[in-house]
Design a protein around this nucleic acid. Structure first.
Length: 664
DNA sequence: TTAGGGTTAG
């Protein structure tokens, strides 16, 4: 039989309909269309479509056969570049594209890049070269795919809808949704006319994103404006977004809309709707849905029944959940641990630890295949019930039984060891994470820092917090506050201040008490300049006794150049400055005559704010007035005297005028 | 002549 490469697609276009996606559903041996006389295409698990090859209308031309054999020669050549050089005259751009896609499908990454470079150098590229190349390259390296896209010389090619869809899809698949949206906006400005595929590509990015629902709806709202109607694929995407955001009413309404538009929901559409009911455990609606689905002839599959189990568990129907689990077992749908895990987790989270353990033991007795999830769930459940010894024991078992652990499992075991106080095991887990190149997440850091604090390894806790912060994780106030307290206790004042700052600059509001707490620590550590910064920014939420303590400490030992600033800030915040603080400040100035200007500034500032020097300070100043200019000092002190007299008169006429309030 | 999606667990 001849091998119809070039002539195949036009005659059997449905084989290449992207909706059926044959390549990913077929085993490798049937991947090559060249070997097919009748192709069997799996359209969905339920439907098998057999496509008979159409009879030839005319024999292939000589040039066609030459190109065809050149393509297979290059694909099969151990040194494809030299074959390419030799045969390049024969080949058209679309033939090179065929080879490029063949390299992509069979994972010949280096060859694909080399071929693409060659095609560029020889000016043999078309739009589909870019869209295919970006698709395959993007599966391995987003940056390389972007590089290819940016290198497109022609501006109009850059807004070709296939090429745009290809690069946008590559960004979405790599979790770069924000860059994807930005690029999309840029493309629109440059003239892209997005189509249904473009919008669906973007929408797919919102499925697993927290709070993706409103943004997805915004995109859906743009569709009519662009003359685009939703198709079955897009309904599938949108329903998945609704389900993963718990929007069951919206999911219902989209299903209704798709029915109204003449689309029949398939198993995936129904599964998403069912999943949306699991958020609230709405088993009534779930049961109704199952009935409807069966009535249209769809047979619930494994995923559907597992999702139904999830609804029952969330709804607290544990008896029916156990029955459904038995049904899953009889149907052969419980050969792995997932449904058991769901039930165990649901039970343990509603305080039914013993029942969860029964399921766990049953599962083990039945020899159900496990990858360690079940153990992990039970370790977490035991920790929640503060049964740390059992949790630790199970963690040990897991370590010996399962070689591969994911981050959640590692965190769960780490937590069990921390709570049981097993330092050696904690270190072993950390080493394991390192070896397996699993990067710690927020939970890992949180568990470790809490543990280090408990073990009084406060500096280690501090180092870990720095690490956590530098990795961009949000910091929890309670944990930071506790660490600040302990660092203060061990006189690690500047470390405490650094924790305070990390928290302060990463959060909009922090608890008022924390400012006061850090202020005490800074005063204690004689870090007056830092203390001044805290006071300056937060004086209004700091108690008067603490401000008083700060003022006193600063006057005695703070930087002399900041003394006036400190007094002004304290006064400006409504704090009444004690007479004795002025006395201390002024004696310091007098002992340092080079600070003459500062003394004069202070003395001039005081009367305007209702402060005057007391008689002993006045005498002290007069004694040294030759250093500061006798005439000037006399003028300033007479102002103090006038003010002090009016204050005396006032306090007599307003007997209720109390300390701490100042008349204006 | 190229581009898109969807269901379950910790």
């Amino acid at each position: 039989m001849e091998t119809p490469v070039l002539g195949f697609e036009p005659r059997c276009p449905h084989l290449f309909n992207t909706n059926s996606r044959p390549s990913s559903s077929l085993p490798a041996s049937t991947l090559s269309v060249r070997t097919l006389t009748a192709a069997t295409v799996v359209k969905s698990p339920a439907t098998v479509v057999v496509v008979a090859e159409a009879p030839r209308t005319k024999p292939h031309s000589k040039s066609f056969l030459t190109r065809k054999s050149a393509i297979s020669e290059i694909e099969q050549s151990p040194d494809f570049l030299s074959s390419l050089q030799r045969l390049s005259r024969v080949l058209k751009v679309q033939d090179l594209n065929v080879i490029l896609r063949d390299f992509g499908i069979s994972g010949r990454w280096q060859d694909l890049i080399q071929l693409f470079d060659w095609m560029q150098q020889h000016g043999k590229v078309s739009d589909s070269t870019y869209s295919s190349c970006i698709k395959f390259v993007g599966a391995k390296s987003v940056s390389k795919a972007l590089e290819i896209y940016q290198s497109i010389p022609d501006e109009s090619t850059k807004t070709n809808v296939y090429i745009c869809n290809s690069i946008l899809s590559c960004l979405v698949k790599n979790g770069k949704l924000d860059s994807c949206i930005n690029l999309f906006d840029q493309m629109k400005r440059d003239g892209l006319k997005p189509d249904v595929v473009t919008y669906n590509t973007l929408l797919a990015g919102f499925i697993k994103v927290k709070n993706g629902f409103p943004k997805a709806m915004e995109l859906v709202g743009e569709l009519p404006h662009n003359g685009i109607k939703m198709d079955g694929v897009m309904y599938g995407t949108v329903l998945a977004i609704c389900a993963s955001n718990g929007r069951c009413e919206e999911a219902e309404s989209f299903v209704q809309q798709m029915k109204d538009e003449g689309h029949s929901p398939n198993m995936y559409h129904y599964s998403s709707l069912l999943n949306s009911y699991s958020w609230k455990g709405d088993y009534k609606k779930a049961d109704e849905l199952m009935t409807e689905m069966k009535s249209v002839g769809l047979v619930p599959n494994k995923v559907m029944m597992t999702t139904l189990l999830k609804v029952y568990i969330k709804g607290g129907l544990f008896e029916r959940s156990r029955e459904l689990l038995s049904e899953l077992e009889s149907a052969g749908y419980a050969e792995n641990e997932m449904p058991y895990c769901m039930l165990m987790d649901g039970l343990s989270k509603t305080g039914k630890l013993e029942e969860a353990m029964t399921i766990f033991d049953d599962m083990k007795a039945k020899g159900v295949k496990s990858d360690g999830y079940a153990n992990s769930i039970m370790i977490a459940a035991l920790c929640r019930s503060k049964r740390f010894e059992e949790a630790k024991q199970l963690a040990r078992d897991s370590e010996t039984t399962y070689e591969k652990c994911d981050l959640v499992m590692l965190n769960t075991m780490l937590c069990a060891y921390c709570r049981a106080g097993e330092m050696e095991s904690v270190m072993r887990m950390m080493k394991k994470m390192d070896e397996q190149a699993v990067s710690p997440d927020y939970n890992t850091f949180h568990i470790l820092i809490k543990y280090f604090i408990k073990e009084k390894l406060h500096l280690l806790a501090y180092q870990t917090l720095l690490d956590m912060h530098s990795k961009g994780h949000r910091l929890e106030e309670e944990l930071c506050s506790s660490l600040i307290y302990h660092l203060g206790k061990i006189r690690a004042h500047s470390e405490a201040f650094s924790v305070y700052n990390m928290l302060r600059y990463s959060k909009r509001t922090i608890c008022k008490d924390l400012h006061e707490k850090i202020l005490h620590i800074l005063i204690h550590g004689k870090l007056f300049k830092d203390a001044y910064v805290v006071v300056k920014d937060n004086a209004k939420v700091i108690s008067q006794p603490t401000l008083k303590r700060f003022c006193k400490a600063f006057m005695v030992s703070g930087n002399i150049n900041l003394v006036n600033d400190v007094l002004k800030v304290l006064h400006g915040s409504g704090h009444k400055i004690d007479q004795v603080q002025f006395e201390i400040a002024i004696s310091r100035y007098i002992s340092q005559p080079d600070k003459k200007e500062l003394l004069l500034q202070l003395l001039q500032w005081m009367p305007g704010q209702g402060y005057v020097v007391d008689s002993s300070t006045r005498n002290l100043i007069l004694k040294q007035s030759h250093l500061f200019g006798r005439q000037l000092i006399a003028e300033i002190l007479s102002k103090h005297h006038i003010v002090s007299r009016t204050m005396v008169v006032r306090s007599r006429s307003e007997p209720k005028f109390s300390r701490g309030q100042r008349g204006k």
